[in-house]
Amino acid sequence: MDIARFKLQHVEILDSIARLREHARAGIVEHAADIAGLVVSMSSIIKVHLAVEDRMLYPAVQKQADRALAEMGRAYQEEMQKIAAAYIDFSRRWNTAAQVARDPEQFRAQANTVLKAVYQRMQKENREFYPAIEAM
């Protein structure tokens, strides 16, 4: 199974998270427009990534004869539902400069929680799940 597109999307998402972090460190209020723009662009990538995972990747993995890999796919899909829901809420709340500038500390707190979960999940996929898929 070719998962190059998924890997590329991970790179794009991780790059967006790094740029969000840079803008937040430089000043959330001062960079609210840049932050909101990154949230919107990153959301587009994440939504496509999640949709293709749900429609194609997870079902294909779960049909494999390798029961351990099939179960891994099922577990990853279930775990991702919680992370995705938290991210969707985050992206809806912080998709305009006005919203970001209005409550910078709440943005920072929620970004630290939600984006950390997204980051950790992608690292886990890169380290465990994708190599297992490529080995099948």
Score class of each variant (00 low, 15 high):
His49Phe: 06
Gln77Ile: 00
Asp89Pro: 00
Ser91Arg: 09
Ala36Trp: 08
Pro59Met: 03
Arg108Ser: 11
Thr96Cys: 08
Leu20Phe: 07
Ala24Ile: 03
His23Lys: 13
Thr113Ala: 14
Ile35Tyr: 09
Ala97Trp: 02
Lys82Ala: 15
Ala132Trp: 07
Val39Asp: 09
Arg67Ser: 10
Leu38Asp: 08
Asp66Lys: 01
Glu53Ile: 06
Ile88Ala: 14
Ala60Phe: 06
His49Glu: 03
Ile46Ala: 12
Ile45Ala: 03
Glu78Asn: 04
Glu71Trp: 00
Glu30Asn: 12
Val11Met: 08
Met136Ser: 11
His49Thr: 05
Tyr130Ser: 04
Leu50Phe: 08
Lys124His: 10
Leu50Pro: 00
Ala65Gly: 15
Leu57Thr: 04
Ala97Pro: 05
Met136Ala: 14
Ser16Trp: 00
Met42Ile: 01
Val39Met: 06
Gln110Ser: 11
Gln123Asp: 07
Val52Ile: 15
Met122Leu: 15
Glu78Lys: 09
Pro59Ala: 03
Asp103Met: 10
Gln77His: 13
Arg108Asn: 06
Leu20Thr: 08
Asp66Trp: 04
Gln64Ser: 15
Ala51Thr: 13
Tyr76Met: 11
Ala117Arg: 11
Lys124Ile: 00
Gly27Phe: 03
Ser43Phe: 02
Val52Arg: 12
Glu12Thr: 09
Arg19Asp: 10
Ile133Thr: 03
Glu22Gly: 00
Leu50Thr: 13
Pro104Ser: 04
His10Val: 07
Leu57Trp: 01
Asp34Phe: 01
Ala65Lys: 14
Glu134Phe: 04
Ser16Tyr: 02
Val48Gln: 13
Gln110Asn: 09
Ala109Pro: 02
Met80Tyr: 09
Arg121Phe: 11
Val61Asp: 03
Ala86Met: 07
Ile28Lys: 01
Phe129His: 07
Ala117His: 05
Ala60Met: 12
Ala97Asn: 06
Ala36Arg: 08
Pro104Trp: 05
Arg127Thr: 10
Arg25Leu: 12
Arg102Met: 09
Met122Ile: 14
Trp94Val: 01
Glu125Arg: 10
Ala117Phe: 02
Asp15Gly: 12
Lys124Arg: 14
Gln64Lys: 11
Glu105Ala: 11
Leu57Lys: 02
Ala98Glu: 15
Met136Asp: 03
Leu69His: 05
Ile35Arg: 04
Phe107Pro: 04
Leu38Lys: 06
Arg127Ile: 06
Leu115Asp: 02
